[in-house]
Amino acid sequence: MCGIVGLHLRNPALYAQLGELLTRMLCEMEDRGADSAGIAVYGDPTWTPPGNGTVSLIDVGATADEVAAALGAELGTPVTVVLRGTTCLVTAGVDSETLLAAARTLYRDVLVGGFGEDLAVLKGVGSPSSLAKSWGLADAQGWQGVGHTRMATESAVTPGGAHPYAVGPQQCLVHNGSFSNHATIRRELRSAGVEFDSENDTEVGARFVAHELAAGVDIESALHHLTETFDGFYTLLVSNRDSFAVVRDAIACKPAVIAETDDWVAMASEYRALAHLPGIEDARIFEPEPEVIYAWTRGKVLA
Score class of each variant (00 low, 15 high):
residue 109 D to F: 03
residue 148 H to T: 04
residue 60 V to G: 03
residue 109 D to L: 07
residue 245 A to E: 08
residue 262 D to P: 00
residue 199 E to T: 15
residue 221 S to D: 15
residue 210 A to L: 05
residue 88 C to A: 10
residue 218 D to P: 01
residue 237 L to D: 01
residue 101 A to F: 03
residue 147 G to C: 07
residue 186 R to P: 09
residue 164 P to T: 01
residue 91 T to H: 14
residue 142 G to L: 11
residue 69 A to Y: 05
residue 248 R to E: 03
residue 278 P to K: 03
residue 204 V to W: 09
residue 298 R to E: 12
residue 7 L to H: 06
residue 46 T to M: 10
residue 190 R to D: 06
residue 6 G to P: 05
residue 292 V to W: 07
residue 147 G to K: 06
residue 160 G to H: 00
residue 278 P to I: 09
residue 113 G to P: 02
residue 103 A to L: 05
residue 299 G to F: 10
residue 21 L to K: 08
residue 289 E to W: 06
residue 228 E to G: 07
residue 230 F to G: 08
residue 283 A to V: 02
residue 62 A to G: 01
residue 280 I to Q: 04
residue 211 H to L: 00
residue 140 A to R: 14
residue 247 V to P: 02
residue 166 A to D: 02
residue 265 V to Y: 04
residue 174 V to A: 05
residue 290 P to E: 07
residue 44 D to C: 08
residue 177 G to F: 06
residue 136 G to Q: 11
residue 41 V to T: 05
residue 73 A to V: 05
residue 36 S to M: 11
residue 4 I to R: 00
residue 224 H to K: 13
residue 217 V to P: 02
residue 153 T to R: 08
residue 198 S to M: 05
residue 11 N to Q: 11
residue 296 W to C: 08
residue 196 F to K: 03
residue 249 D to P: 10
residue 43 G to D: 09
residue 175 H to Q: 05
residue 148 H to C: 08
residue 122 L to M: 13
residue 104 R to A: 07
residue 133 K to Q: 15
residue 285 I to E: 12
residue 5 V to G: 01
residue 289 E to V: 13
residue 48 T to I: 13
residue 44 D to A: 09
residue 114 G to M: 01
residue 132 A to C: 15
residue 160 G to V: 00
residue 46 T to E: 15
residue 128 P to K: 08
residue 143 W to L: 11
residue 197 D to Y: 11
residue 129 S to E: 14
residue 241 R to A: 15
residue 94 V to I: 11
residue 168 G to K: 02
residue 206 A to K: 08
residue 152 A to H: 02
residue 61 G to T: 11
residue 224 H to C: 12
